[in-house]
Amino acid sequence: MSDKSNTPAAAQAAKDVEELERRSQTAARLFDVRRIIGGLFVVYGVIVTLAGVFASDEDLKKAQDININLWTGIGMLILGLAFLLWLRLSPTIPPPDAGQEKEER
């Protein structure tokens, strides 16, 4: 294969990407990951905190007298709520669609 033919291929690839970027739907339609992290950690936080509240003596002894379930659960709960709060305070801004962009110019 000859390396001389590469110029059009490379230029075409760059042009393709620009075109695809215009048609891309990720920015407009992909959900916000903060919702998933927040949700999962709130659920995990509640489960693990409850395991800490009802910890047996055996559990406590195993974890060197630290109620590790309680502390980890509370930590996860706080992290989860923090993500949900962040999402609430600065929600995802959907990008202006092509039509609006034209009007602004």
Binding site: L20, R23, S24, Q25, T26
Partner: peptide, 14 residues
């Protein structure tokens, strides 16, 4: 959210 190959390969660079 996957409309184009760019969405599939690179999350639409977004």
């Amino acid at each position: 959210s996957v409309k184009t190959s760019l969405d599939f390969f690179l999350s639409g660079r977004s």
